[in-house]
Write a protein that binds this DNA or RNA. Structure first.
Lengths: 226, 226
DNA sequence: CCATTTCTTAAAAAATCTTTAAAGGATAAA
DNA sequence: TTTATCCTTTAAAGATTTTTTAAGAAATGG
């Protein structure tokens, strides 16, 4: 059984992915369009499918629907669409996970590892949280910004994890504080501001103009969203 | 399972909706009349139905009644009729939500998301308030005027939310002030006028001739209504 | 039609909230 | 214990929102 089938029309990227996955120790097959990919899925067994959305002819969503008609192969979709909607809702088509192009190979590797674990080795599941180019490895308490690992402290991590589990919601400062620091904590609320500042420093492109952790005046903060 | 079944007879609009929903990441089926739509509902499973009221042959209400006889599929109805009656009728027949044509795709997206959440992910429900072309996302404290998001401040938001929760009622100034500012607030009542003005500036087509937030002389204000 | 009251508008002032930097305390590691 | 790191506090600077003010416009009632 081959481990991973890659369906990606871009010659160069397909080669890069294939090479990377082989270096990671997987056996890989690569097809350049959905039709050929589907045919192969029908003929041989794979552990998982890495599927591009934009393909010549039949697109990734259609291919996925076709596959889901017959089997429960784990699928990780890749898409160039950067807008939030298509990513979040891509799951509803039946993909098991989703990664935005351009992506970091490190994160791709983590995601594949996680998906494999989830599917074939339920014992020790690896949990990843991704939003935009930020990815959290919950077990390892590590944070990636794109390709780079970001050094983060304990409180910062807890705060970030909480916010990433409630994306696009407006989080009340008091509530947020209580969630992280605990209800009967004597610490100052100002401490929250400071940690937010440090997270911005580490995660934002331009910490002065935060796009990821936005301030909602008189209320609190919002992670992601418009 | 396909996510959304669209029943819409207008060729152009149907195509637009279908394209939009696919871009949003949903899988979509589209039928052009109620009869075919019902048949499909009987044959395949959908997560929700987006149903036009005015259809050739069997209309949307009749179709909805037919569906409700058998199952509890979430239904969002679209109607060109702006009068209250049809909306009320829609809810009575068992629609889960309602959107007026012509509508904003952004708001359609929000409504669908909300309905999906409400039905399949009760954990964090998204609450929307809509009146005419104004829509409030209560969780996110954001406001849409048609397609556009309107930037709004804290007090403005609170005031608007209160008024939208009491639409078409005549709101006494003192009462309104106490509701928003709190009973034992020393601030000047004039502050209310100013905030009303800013809301008009942001929400009205012609702020000088307010249609949405009307003045009721010597009493207060009225949101919506004749 | 005029005086009076009430509402709108604009702009300045005040109040409030947020960010930032820096220092001291706490905690954990060496 | 010493050292380094992380967390909290504080205070001042910076932003934004809210309130106040005052003048002009509109409506009401005689």
């Amino acid at each position: 059984m081959t481990d991973i089938l890659v369906i990606e029309d871009n010659e160069e990227l397909g080669q890069l992915i294939t090479d990377f996955l082989k270096r990671e120790g997987y056996s890989v097959a690569w097809e350049k369009n959905a039709e050929d990919g589907l045919k192969l899925v029908g003929e041989a067994a794979f552990k998982m499918l890495l599927l591009d959305v934009m393909l010549p002819g039949m697109n990734g969503y259609e291919a996925l629907q076709e596959i889901r008609r017959n089997q429960k192969l784990p699928v990780l979709m890749m898409s160039a669409k950067t807008d939030e909607q298509s990513k979040v809702l891509g799951f509803e088509v039946g993909a098991d996970d989703y990664i935005d192009k351009p992506f970091s190979f490190k994160v791709l590797g983590l995601k594949i590892k996680a998906l494999m674990k989830r599917t074939y080795d339920l014992a020790e599941e690896r949990q990843l949280l991704t939003y935009g180019n930020i990815t959290l490895d919950v077990g390892a308490r590590t944070v990636f910004k794109g390709d780079e690992q970001v050094q983060i402290t304990g409180k910062e991590y807890e705060l970030l994890e909480y916010m990433m589990r409630h994306p696009e919601q407006i989080l009340n400062k008091d509530k947020l504080f209580n969630e992280i620091w605990g209800v009967d904590c004597f610490s100052d609320l100002g401490s929250l501001n400071v940690h937010i500042r440090w997270l911005r420093e580490k995660l934002e492109e331009d910490p002065k103009n935060p796009k990821l952790i936005k301030t909602v005046w008189r209320v609190g903060y919002q992670f992601g969203g418009t």
